[in-house]
Simulated scan of single mutants.
Amino acid sequence: MKTHFEPSLGDPLALVAARVHEAQGRGRRAFALFQAARISGVIVWIMPAHIPELPFLGALPAGVNERLHLFRTTGETDLLWSVEEALRSPAVGLVIAEPQQSMSLTAGRRLQLAAETGQTRGMMLIRDDAGSNAAESRWVCESSPSPAVDSTLHHWSLTKNKKGTLGAWVLDWNGTSSDFNLVSEARERHQPAQAPG
């Protein structure tokens, strides 16, 4: 399955527009970059100033580097204010943020209202079990080695979805474009299946 900008409604990995979503797990940044490669418009990434790991601009998917604006905030209040302001802008296609604390229901609802105003998608990269009940969807994102040298298998599970069903997918995505392949369960095996006894 090949997918490019502005995912279709039938795409199980598409983020609902004008809403704020959450991703947790060790692969949450990869999931955010995957979405950034698929969504058109300006990308705003907001993170606390004390986090040393920044997105490596030379290794971003094609087309993301030119659209990315990185902001570093000095505290959680500044981070949430920045997210809200970015979500209100109709020029922004995707807002990615890395809060360090759990969000209250009130803060989550404010972000949802801002996303509706700007018709912008938000992606909060949360710590495990630190999500808001106001989130449109929540994804658990992990990765594992792939048989291919230039790729990583991504295990992405949709554990909360206000407008649809839940599910889990394994993708082969090399991180250089918006193209990906869904992987069958048989290909996930790292050892041959046991012969019946």
Rank of each mutant, 00 (worst) to 15 (best):
G93I: 09
A135N: 13
P99M: 10
L13M: 14
T3V: 15
A32Y: 12
A135L: 07
A195F: 02
S144Q: 14
R121G: 01
R121N: 05
G122P: 09
I46G: 00
G118H: 05
R72P: 03
S146W: 01
T77E: 15
S144P: 08
A135T: 06
S144K: 13
Q194N: 03
V83E: 05
H50K: 01
P196L: 05
E6F: 08
N65C: 12
R28T: 09
T117W: 03
A36F: 06
E98A: 08
G131Q: 05
R189E: 11
W45H: 10
W139G: 05
P7A: 04
L105V: 13
D179S: 12
S89R: 09
R38A: 12
E66K: 04
G63E: 10
E98P: 06
H21I: 09
L33T: 07
S178F: 03
V83G: 07
R88I: 10
R67S: 05
E76H: 12
A17F: 00
Q112D: 01
L158G: 07
A115V: 03
M103D: 01
N161M: 09
L111S: 02
V64H: 02
S137A: 12
A17T: 13
W156S: 07
A195P: 08
L15Q: 02
A23R: 09
Q24S: 14
D11I: 04
R19M: 12
T159R: 11
R189T: 00
P147R: 13
S143K: 12
G131D: 13
Q35H: 03
Q100G: 15
E85L: 04
R29M: 15
A32E: 08
L57S: 07
S177Y: 00
Q100H: 11
L166R: 13
G118S: 00
G164W: 03
F56L: 11
A49W: 09
S8F: 06
K163Q: 15
L94G: 00
S89F: 04
